[in-house]
């Protein structure tokens, strides 16, 4: 009995010793294997394509000077994966903010404000407990000029002994004054791999 336990422990130790060690991946130099699911490189590609195209088109440059205010609307996830679409929109928001052309409001959103504190802080108005000189006044919140919306689609195909997974990242930037989409973009991400690989 003791001998068997010892043998099992030894083999476990050997297996553990052979396991691939956990390591950091530097996103600036990652040539690692590609997954059939969407990974950070796919979101980075889509965000880069979208932002560069938005900037080059002049759609996000305010001819009157100053920055446009953007709100993030609905980005529908029509894939078989559980995707947090913020992975995509955050990259776009950060890049547009850094460009000095667009700032995103967190005070408005389809499902309520992204940061509810903008309204909560206003509830301090007329409270005797707070120094009113620091409380936000009426009419100071900025309404959005632009809305970013989109969809992520997935289509699976069998190609011979392999499977092909197609992702389409579609984005629209709408001018809220006119309701017109002043910029639109689509980034296809096509992957082909083993039938055994899962894409969900």
């Amino acid at each position: 009995m003791l001998l068997r336990a010892l043998a099992i422990l030894t083999s476990l130790a050997v297996i553990a010793g052979c396991a691939t060690p956990t390591r950091y991946v530097d996103p600036a130099a990652d040539d690692g294997p590609v997954a059939m699911t969407m990974d950070y490189r796919d979101f980075e590609k889509a965000a880069t394509d979208a932002v560069e195209d938005m900037l080059a088109s002049g759609a996000v440059d305010n001819p009157d000077g100053g920055r446009y205010i953007m709100v993030v609307s609905r980005i529908t996830n029509d894939t078989m994966q559980r995707i947090d679409t913020d992975q995509l929109t955050k990259k776009i928001r950060v890049a547009l903010l850094r460009s000095g052309k667009v700032v995103t409001t967190t005070a408005v959103g389809l499902d309520g404000a992204e940061d509810e504190m903008a309204m909560k802080a206003r509830e301090l108005r007329d409270s005797e407990e707070f120094d009113q000189s620091g409380v936000q006044g009426r009419g100071t919140l900025q309404a959005p000029d632009l809305s970013l919306s989109g969809k992520i689609l997935q289509r699976n195909h069998r190609v011979g002994k392999e499977q092909q997974v197609e992702y389409y990242i579609q984005l629209s930037l709408t001018d809220l004054a006119s309701g017109l989409a002043i910029w639109e973009g689509e980034t296809p991400i096509i992957k082909r791999g083993s039938n055994k690989a899962v894409s969900w």
């Binding site: 996103p27 600036a28 130099a29 990652d30 490189r41 980075e44 590609k45 965000a47 880069t48 932002v51 560069e52 195209d53 900037l55 080059a56 990259k91 776009i92 950060v94 890049a95």
Partner: peptide
């Protein structure tokens, strides 16, 4: 820029491809 990774492309023999960055 937006991301820090390399963009990848596949080329077939004789193909001329044009790439742009802003």
């Amino acid at each position: 820029g937006v991301g820090e990774g390399y963009r990848k492309a596949t080329l077939v023999t004789g193909q001329v491809r044009y790439f742009k960055a802003t």
